[in-house]
Amino acid sequence: MNIEWSVLGEVALVSVLLTIALVGLFTVGIVTGANQGGAAAAGRPRLGAALSRVGGYACFALCAAAVGYGIYLIAF
């Protein structure tokens, strides 16, 4: 019986880290979007708001890329 513990360990590590990274990114994206309304009401500088919006979009774009890669993995 030869159980490939190293592969198993890698699978576990990659799964956990990727999940945390993706959930983290997406949450940052949501938070920047959700704070938009609050920031405008509080009269925060426009530059900061614009920067955080760009950052939020970047997070979503990375998540979308991950989904695209997932579809690629399924199909090929």
Binding site: V16, T19, I20, V23, G24, F26, T27, V28, I30, V31, A34
Partner: peptide
């Protein structure tokens, strides 16, 4: 871990 993280960030 992801649930903890997302609640913390948000």
């Amino acid at each position: 871990a992801a649930t903890r993280l997302t609640y913390r960030v948000a």
